[in-house]
Each structure stands twice: as C-alpha cells, then as structure tokens.
C-alpha cells in the first residue's frame, strides 16, 4: 500500500532538494509480532526514492543486535537517522512517523543532512555546559498538530550536543512505556526518565530542564 500520492511525492522531492549531505535511514523491525513494521518499511522505501541522497538500511532488532545496542534501539519499529558518515547523531523515531509526525520526520532528515539552521548563539552557549548524557523522550500521537514542533526541538538539541539524544515515541503503539510515564497529554517530554513537562514549550524550557540533569 502506498502512503504517498503524486502531489505529496512532488512536494517532498522539492523539500529534499535542500538536503546538503547524504542521510541513511536505519529502520529496525522484527518479524512476527510487530503490527506496524511492514507499513513502516514500505513508507521508508517510498521516502528513499525521493532523493539520491537518502539511503535505506533495513535492520532486525534481534539479528542486528549490535547495531541496535549502538543506537540504543529498544522497540520496533524504530527509525534512526544516520549522517553522511553513517554515524549515529542521537536522533530516533519510535513508531511510524505518519500523520502529523511526518512534519518532524522530514525536517529531521534535512537537519541530519546539514541543511538546518543553527540554533541562536545564546542557546549554543548554554548547551556547552552539557557534559553528561541526556536522553529526551517526546511522546506523541499521530493526530497531534503541536507534537512535531516538540520533536523537532528535541532533535535539534541532540544534533547540537553529542551528549544529548532525543527520541519520538508514538504513545499508542508503545502503550506500555507511555503508561509507565503516565502519558495522557501530548506532546509529553521526559528527560532522563526524571524531569518532565507537557506541551510544545519554547526551547528555553527544554534547555532549563536539561540543565537540571547536569547538577
């Protein structure tokens, strides 16, 4: 089943013309029990055809356990965006980035390709002090128009600082972890499984919460 129609394909091709470097989409799936894996793979196959700079790697969380560990992949389907050197830059999508989340996924590819805009200097300065590992989980639903904004901010922070990694988690597919963090409004942002806030808050709030983990 195709997710993209001709109009959308053309729009995406135009957007991908702004890509600077190559990007590899590493999709982790598992045979058998995963409901959305097949659909996620076929969606990524469609995305791959839209630019010569996009490459797809299909991986299995069990057979490719070493890579899964390297990228800290713990659920399927999970999509990791790798840069031109096929290196992990801390950007992950758990669950199919369809619905509104396409609006965080496509910009994610552009960012990893190096064509994103730099964060304002004030934030860069604040991030320089981050030297301990930070994990940002952004819980979303696919029908939430505010969620991609929060995912983009988290991913942007991950790109700017090597100690930060950020992941989108689609709350309905991964209900167990969502329940664990009491997710009942999205976007819900959880930092190092400890500090949390709700809503697509300004970058200042993300940075403030991140700094709490550095004490």
């Amino acid at each position: 089943m195709k997710l993209l129609n001709d109009d959308l394909r053309n729009q995406l091709k135009e957007v991908f013309q702004d890509m600077k470097d190559d990007v590899t989409i590493a999709v982790f799936t598992k045979s058998g029990t995963c409901n959305t894996c097949t659909e996620t793979i076929s969606f990524m196959e469609e995305i791959e055809t839209l630019s010569d700079k996009i490459h797809l790697k299909k991986l299995d969380i069990e057979n490719d356990a070493e890579l899964a560990k390297a990228y800290d992949v713990q659920m399927v389907p999970s999509i990791v965006l790798l840069n031109k050197d096929e290196a992990y830059v801390g950007i992950k999508f758990n669950g199919i980035p369809a619905g509104h989340e396409i609006n965080s996924f496509i910009p994610g590819i552009l960012e990893v390709s190096g064509s994103g805009e730099q964060l304002p200097e004030g934030f860069l300065k604040q991030l320089e002090t981050v030297k301990k590992p930070v994990n940002i989980k952004v819980f979303v639903t696919l029908s939430c128009p505010h969620c991609p904004g929060a995912v983009q901010k988290a991913h942007k922070l991950a790109l700017e600082n090597e100690f930060i990694n950020a992941e989108m988690i689609e709350a309905q597919t991964f209900d167990e972890i969502s329940n664990k963090f009491n997710v009942s409004s999205v976007p819900k942002i959880v930092i190092n499984d400890q500090y949390e806030f709700v809503g697509n808050q300004p970058l200042e709030v993300f940075v403030e919460e991140i700094q709490k983990t550095q004490a």
Binding site: T141, C144, Q172, N182, S184, S185, E196, V198
Partner: peptide, 18 residues
Amino acid sequence: YLGRGVAYCAICDGPLFE
C-alpha cells in the same frame, strides 16, 4: 493533573482515551 488526565486539546489527546 495537567498531562495526567486533564487535557486541553481533544484531537491531540483523544487517542489516549480509547
């Protein structure tokens, strides 16, 4: 209970109340 059952966006959070 903001974000723990109190919500302000029905299309965003509706799916979590299936």
